[in-house]
Amino acid sequence: MYEWPKVPIVNTRKRLAEQYGPHEDNGFFGPGTVTWKVWAYPTSYILGFARSVTIEHLDPNLTAAVVTSGGVKYRPHTRYGRTLTYFGQVAFGATRPTAKAADVLVKVHSKAIGNDPVTGGRYDANKPSSQLWIHMTAWHSILYCYEKFGPGRLSAGEETQYWTECARAAELQTIDPATVPRSREEVIAYFDDWRPHLAASEAAADMVHFILNLEVALPPQMSARQRLLFKPLTTLLSKGVVATYPKYMRDLLNVQQSPLVDALVTPPLRALHTLLDRWLFARVFLMAVLAPQALPVVAPVVLGIPAENDITMTPRQAQREYGFDEPAQAHLGMRAKQYDRVFDKGERPSDEGLIESQQHIGAMEPRTAV
């Protein structure tokens, strides 16, 4: 039987602050940045996140990598928590552990290689264009849901800062930061340019429909009765995610929802996220259920706990400071060995990076089919 998280209801901010220590420093953004403002708002960690990880599957290379790994379907709760933890590290985490996690992630992605059955070519999760697609769907989705279900549009100056910070975060991936869009117009153009490359295979549609059943993110130990308590919430949130899809994406993914439903779910979702923003107990409780490993990363920022050192760096500065290669040049020997195993010898890739990642972005639970 799943035990509910022990989150204090009264004097929440003070009592929660006692449970979570400060970050070593302010990371790559820090107080007053637009990234902290947008990513710390409650719309980010369910609606924004679910929107990004479903839209991602329109890249056939990504779908091939996800389906081959099997992690989403067999460890949905763990996969949700590990991915949210990493996104939280990028936005809020201290420079040293986040730079290390990004370096390890290159190793993790080194095993996500193979032959794409849709395109007939090879896929490689470390490919810069694939990384940029993931990066842009995440940063765009987080902002889109903030605008639609949260406080609304940023000012022109804030939006410019947001996309500048998006390019800074790209330094943690194999992306060339010069290729990252820097304005709303450039972001729109980026997604328009990607449209001819999008493909909704049977596997992609299956993964999206699986994820849109947001109950899969709940802990697998939950009883049927406990899951029933979350059913109205997960249903509402799922319809909210679909309400953000443009028509061509709905058509590709065979996701049907009327404009009336889109309109009806928006006001209650705005009200819900306003409540979560103001009621820390509900906000922290929900994250403790969905992604407990992400709480130590996110909680210090949400609770306003000052960092030990009032320092920020760019990822490039942190990589030099802590002795990590730029991601595009990191672990080339290991990546070459993975290519040799998969493409030359027809073997499975090594799990070396995946095993190491557990101490940096969360442990993996045993495989449990849903």
Rank of each mutant, 00 (worst) to 15 (best):
Q293C: 07
E18F: 11
S69I: 09
L58P: 11
I311W: 05
L172S: 00
R335G: 02
Q317N: 03
A178Y: 00
N26Q: 15
G114N: 10
R348E: 15
R82D: 05
S110I: 12
N126I: 11
K37H: 06
V7K: 05
D351T: 09
L212D: 12
S129R: 13
T78S: 14
E56T: 01
I113S: 06
T119W: 04
E165I: 12
P97C: 03
F49A: 13
F324C: 13
K148Q: 11
R278Q: 14
V370S: 11
V241Y: 05
H273C: 09
V10M: 05
R168H: 05
L236W: 00
W194G: 02
C145L: 13
F230M: 14
A330I: 08
A170I: 01
E56P: 06
K231R: 15
V242H: 09
A112G: 01
P300L: 03
F87C: 10
Y41R: 07
D103E: 15
N115I: 15
V187F: 08
I311G: 04
Y20F: 15
E158F: 07
K37T: 02
W4V: 14
G333S: 04
R51N: 03
V10R: 13
G157M: 02
N213I: 10
P292L: 12
T234S: 12
G157F: 04
I355T: 14
H197D: 04
S357R: 11
I211A: 00
H140I: 08
W4S: 13
L303P: 02
L218T: 02
V187Q: 03
I361E: 06
F210P: 00
P315K: 02
M249K: 10
F92L: 02
F87S: 04
D193R: 15
G121M: 00
T137D: 06
V72M: 13
F285H: 14
I311S: 03
G362S: 06
A167V: 04
L303T: 09
D344Y: 00
P117Y: 03
T78V: 01
A271I: 09
Q319S: 01
T12D: 11
I113H: 01
D251I: 14
L62Y: 11
N115D: 10
G157Q: 11
K73G: 06
A17Q: 14
L47H: 04
P5N: 10
I305A: 03
R153E: 06
Q338H: 04
L275I: 12
V261P: 00
L276A: 10
P8S: 13
A294H: 02
M313H: 12
A330K: 07
I311F: 12
H197A: 09
V72E: 05
E165T: 07
Y144K: 15
F281G: 04
R278G: 03
L264N: 00
R122S: 05
Y2E: 10
K107V: 11
W36P: 01
M364R: 13
P327W: 05
L47T: 11
A369Y: 13
V67T: 14
Y146E: 03
M334V: 15
P151Y: 08
K100Y: 09
R13G: 02
T368R: 15
V208H: 00
V106F: 00
T164F: 01
V289S: 00
A205T: 15
